[in-house]
Design a binder for these strands. Structure first.
Lengths: 158, 158
DNA sequence: GTTTTATCGTTTCAAATGAAACGTTATAAG
DNA sequence: CTTATAACGTTTCATTTGAAACGATAAAAC
């Protein structure tokens, strides 16, 4: 008899598909409307949280590859959305922050992203939303214990 | 004032990171122990559910790109894990199924995957697990309404 | 002070990716 | 029947990818 692995009840599988669908649905929006690729959006949104940040800060916060962050940052700088300045005390670090245009764009993009999320979450009650966060937190914490140290989170995981 | 987009409370972001971590933690296991790449594992596990399947069936069930499925199938066939036969009624279709070795390997891999999942889910109570499935189902259904038809789910979404 | 060792961000390069073109087979329309 | 259209899986090719090497800077060890 074969082992009872029901794929559509297998968490890694379902999580992957859900995550892909959510990312894609959102990505089509900001790609079409703001010309941001997914890595660019990630970097951009991260800087919306806190500024200035080094590239490495962004790597840590987003679980993206550092080469990918480097390239996304370069494109954003080239597009005039970010300012990149050397760190005064440590020449290895960059101080990344929004340019004026970047700040303006963020002021447009962020509310849109939030509105989209709200629309998605509108199928859940307040209680369910709280549950969702709690569950995800527990799982993330648990899986973090399993991940071998220093293994980077590559992007094409499926 | 800047828009209040808290990234670590932003569902697409958190979902992506959780999904990556889960996939990676599991992937390291079956890559090391069974030599299966992630796409290969996906195809393999899908065939564990139902046989025979066409490549296209697998594309639909896994949300993977058809080129990627084609390549994974070829590697699995070359590795002697799958049998590929022409469909008697439709020459365009393939009938993919486990070879004897494939079946044996599946009998090893599947319980291991289930055990790993059980370990991950052991942080949740039965009630919480039920909640998790219900929540994910709701979200997936909701987001499915948003996805433009026929847009394939690419893999590098972050 | 000098020499290792580590860190940051970029670049290189081989591998993976996926959109599009393709050959083949099946179905629909004429 | 013949032609046009669609579907399946493979292949091509330009792009993306990330692991590793790299140069430059800083910190630690001596």
């Amino acid at each position: 008899m074969s082992p009872d692995l029901q794929l559509n009840r297998f968490l890694p599988y379902r999580l992957n598909i859900l995550s892909k669908k959510v990312s894609l649905a959102l990505a089509t929006r900001y790609q079409e409307r703001f010309g941001l690729s997914i890595p660019e959006w990630r970097v951009f949104a991260t800087l919306g949280q806190e500024q200035p940040l080094s590239s490495n800060d962004i790597v840590e916060r987003t679980a993206m590859d550092k080469a990918k962050v480097s390239r996304a940052v370069n494109r954003l700088v080239a597009a005039g959305l970010l300012d990149r300045q050397p760190h005064p005390r440590d020449q290895r670090l960059l101080r990344l922050s929004f340019s004026t245009r970047g700040r303006d764009l963020y002021a447009q993009v962020a509310p849109e992203a939030l509105a989209w999320e709200a629309q998605l979450l509108s199928v859940l009650t307040d209680t369910e939303r709280a549950q969702l966060w709690a569950l995800m937190e527990k799982l993330e914490q648990r899986v973090a214990e399993e991940i071998p140290e220093s293994v980077p989170l590559s992007d094409s995981l499926d």
